[in-house]
Design a protein around this nucleic acid. Sequence first.
DNA 1: ATATACTCCACAAAATTAGTAGACAATATA
DNA 2: TATATTGTCTACTAATTTTGTGGAGTATAT
Lengths: 139, 139
Amino acid sequence: MKLSTRSRYGLRFLIDLATHAGEGPVFLKDIARRQDLSEKYLWNVVLSLKSAGMVNSVRGPRGGYYLVGSPADITMNDIVSILEGPISLVDCVENRSSCNKADTCAARDVWVEAAGKIKNVLEGITLGTIVERMASKQS
Amino acid sequence: MKLSTRSRYGLRFLIDLATHAGEGPVFLKDIARRQDLSEKYLWNVVLSLKSAGMVNSVRGPRGGYYLVGSPADITMNDIVSILEGPISLVDCVENRSSCNKADTCAARDVWVEAAGKIKNVLEGITLGTIVERMASKQS
DNA sequence: ATATACTCCACAAAATTAGTAGACAATATA
DNA sequence: TATATTGTCTACTAATTTTGTGGAGTATAT
């Protein structure tokens, strides 16, 4: 039950972006350097975030990336869903037809319930609160 | 954020076992047939459950597996922890030294919090309630 | 004795994840 | 308009994890 590096890198990217909000677009290259991530691989992660409309980019000199919405409106569930896929602990939660026993399966009910609760947890954590907490930590 | 088949198979094995409690040991072969799982692979999963002390076995004819404790005392967190490893969404949650930035990392705090809450959710679901719910569903 | 079922090591196929290479496209600025 | 800077994109490869198989052996109730 580990998250892939996509989610980890994505979150670090977004935190970095939120931290530098209001300073104009931020270079992918700078974030990769600050966070010590492969620039190429990070781009691939960020591509997903952009496709999902969570970030946007400006090309050319003085270009870079910026958050589309307010950090307070971006939840961990949003981030993980984009980068990891929907929070279904097993396929049959999302996709009844992936198992021909889904309708009568006792185990499935468990996973549906657990997935729902985990989703609630992740929805309760926003990028905004993360950045706030960071700031108060440093002072 | 998917669980591996180990957890899925393991839960189905345990549900089957709990359902047949009080009838003496249950054959792995029978469960594999009922649940339509590879006998060999299921054995490997069950081995982990046995090593962890959750189930025990009797050899020879009339042998088989049985639950060690009461279904009411076995939580989803126990099961997933055994079969999937500890619920740390990222390595640094369990293992600070896996990342040299763990002490100052803002993202880590998020994962620690999320992992703790997810653990609470899974601890709230026991094998006992699952079996009960199944029974009431069938009536 | 022997049938039944568990034990355990080693191996292999499949799938997923992680990461790299390099050419191309857009654009702010001089 | 030239050019430096930065994002875009496709294709490929390497590493890891997951999932599963084979087969020889061991314990024991009948």
